[in-house]
Amino acid sequence: MLTQPYHLYVERVDPDRNMARFYTLAIEPTLFGTPRLLRRWGRIGTSGRTMVHHFEREEDAVALFLDLLRERRAHGYGVKRIEAPARGE
């Protein structure tokens, strides 16, 4: 079983280059309890492409998760900040 949830959504938007991309990472257990890393990426507004990596140990899945996160950050992806509505609205 996973010790904690791992979910990430990052975007790279550059209107000058007509670029609007997303990249998601998630580690979740399979039916048999082993971890898998799900990657989705593509143009914002589409379902994108998906890749799944299966692991025997959670530590291996987390290591790839962090490597992919570093790679995306190096290419200009950032966490999208969502403003919460003010109370009473």
Rank of each mutant, 00 (worst) to 15 (best):
R87T: 05
E58G: 01
I82F: 10
R43N: 07
L68G: 02
R49K: 15
T30K: 10
T34A: 13
T3D: 11
M51I: 14
P15W: 04
L37G: 01
T30F: 07
R49C: 07
R21A: 08
R73W: 00
R87M: 08
D16I: 02
E56S: 07
E89V: 14
P15V: 02
R70Y: 03
T30Q: 12
E56D: 11
R87W: 09
Y9V: 12
I44N: 06
H7W: 10
R81S: 06
F32N: 05
L38H: 02
P35R: 03
P35E: 05
M19N: 03
L2M: 12
F32E: 11
G48P: 05
R87A: 12
R70E: 12
A86T: 15
Y23F: 15
L66Y: 00
H75E: 08
A86K: 15
Y9P: 00
G88P: 14
V79M: 09
R39Q: 15
I27Q: 04
F65V: 04
E28P: 00
Y9L: 14
L66A: 00
L69F: 02
E58D: 06
G78L: 03
P29D: 08
G48D: 09
G33W: 08
T24F: 10
F32Q: 09
R87L: 11
G42H: 10
A26D: 13
E28Q: 13
R49L: 15
T3K: 10
A86F: 12
R72I: 00
V52M: 09
T50Y: 03
L31M: 11
R39M: 15
R81Q: 13
F55C: 08
Y9D: 13
E58W: 02
D67T: 07
